[in-house]
Amino acid sequence: MRTYLLRKRRKKESSFKYIMSVLHLWLGLLSSVIIFVVCLSGSIYAFKTQIENLIYKDVVYYKSKENSPKIAIDTIVNNFDKQFGGATSITVFKEADKSVLVSSFSKQSNGVSAYYNPNSGELLGTKNKTSIAFFDFILEVHRFLLAGDTGKFINGVAVLIFIFLLFSGFIIWLPKKLNQLKTSLKIKFKAKFYRINYDLHRVLGFYSMLLLFFMSVTGLYVSFHWVKNAVIVGLGGDSIVISDSNIALKKTLSNSFDTMFDDLSREDKTNKKQKSNLQSLLIKTDSIFKYDGTKIIQLADENSKSINIIKMNTGNLLHFYVPDKIEFSINGKIRKQELFTSLPLNNQFKLIAKPLHTGEIMGLPTIIIYFLISLIGCSLPITGFIIWFKKVK
């Protein structure tokens, strides 16, 4: 067995390339199952929105009567409150044929997600709890391997190994001579099975390397505090670890909380019974952010005494889905405006880290690309194992 895990060094092979090759084999065999599971679950979850839109197409999309005006969003929210309890968020899609999505979530339960006709306020239907549970299961597998914090740690170690495998795989792939480059970029489909498998591993691994690396790093960012901290500091932000050595951040947070509580105190004294009109807030938002985009209303609760409206802007060079935000007080006054393009780089990255990881950042085109790349990620442990197994036989 030692022969197959610690091969002989080839003639004229550098020590560095030999070590990379041996580590690539060992670590690849060690992490192969977890990498396969993570990539497969990620490829399924990438199409979550599209699958849900297909499953619920009769309620997600509606037939609008010609010249029929849309009713105030407050009416829809009131209907939801009567039928399901307090709403927490409302999504008003930019697409004219899409219904309004109202959701109610809490720490205790997944709540309800219901679709309403924006012309009549009529309830069209709710998300099926089975499909919600299915995607929750897929996400749990993808992030925690169904093993809680232990699974999260194992997952993280496997992804770190995968990042090294991408690097070592590139070192192994590098041809000795420039005239061999063309051969290294093609798959010989007319060859025998093991040769095709070998080419699939090397060539597909090379073509997908950068995106797989990016997806791995952003996945670690979303899941792990220390990676998030390192990335944010690297992009020019303050450390998100609050400690005695980080007095500046503590002071900044303290001042911001003092200001917020002062505002809340004044509002509570003068406007205890006053409620903001959500429709008017949408109109204000559209008058400030003058472009067509999906709007997400995050309603105030016991923890957040403000109403946030996020509007998704795609009118940029790369057509990224980037969020501009307005924070309203509970009586409808504008507290803060956040234009994505005016934010520091580290804050911009915080806002788009998740869609960058899932592929939603540019809509369906990048979701399809991410799906295909994730499938390649699934295939690498399989084709790699077959390469090793052939040598063992």
Rank of each mutant, 00 (worst) to 15 (best):
Y198I: 09
L139I: 06
V217K: 03
F36C: 10
I242E: 14
F328I: 03
L299I: 07
K65W: 03
K192G: 07
D263V: 09
P118N: 04
L101N: 04
I326C: 09
P323L: 12
D58V: 00
K176C: 01
V159W: 03
T358D: 02
E360W: 12
F289T: 02
L345V: 13
K65E: 15
S14P: 04
S32F: 06
K177V: 04
V92T: 04
V227N: 07
T91L: 14
N316M: 12
Q83K: 15
F371E: 03
F47R: 05
V233R: 06
N110F: 04
T130D: 11
S15C: 07
R2W: 12
S184K: 15
P344N: 07
I71Y: 02
K333R: 14
A46S: 15
E360M: 10
G236P: 11
G156M: 06
V141F: 05
N229P: 03
Y4G: 10
F47I: 08
S31G: 14
I172W: 12
P323V: 10
Q108H: 11
V241Q: 13
N67G: 08
V241W: 12
S256K: 15
S21A: 14
G111K: 03
K391A: 11
N179S: 14
H24T: 08
I34R: 06
K311V: 13
I71F: 02
D244C: 02
F261R: 11
N246K: 14
V157N: 07
T252R: 13
M1H: 07
L210F: 06
Y321M: 09
S379K: 07
Y18N: 02
G359N: 05
L30N: 09
F328T: 01
W226S: 15
T183R: 14
T252A: 14
I232R: 07
G236A: 10
I161F: 15
Q108R: 13
F193H: 09
K325P: 00
Y4I: 11
N255K: 15
K82D: 13
K127L: 05
S21R: 14
K63P: 00
A114S: 13
R335F: 02
S168R: 01
M215D: 01
G205P: 01
G28E: 08
W388E: 02
F389M: 14
V392E: 03
E360G: 14
V102E: 02
K188D: 12
S21G: 13
G156K: 04
N117I: 03
K107N: 13
L27S: 06
S64M: 11
F144M: 04
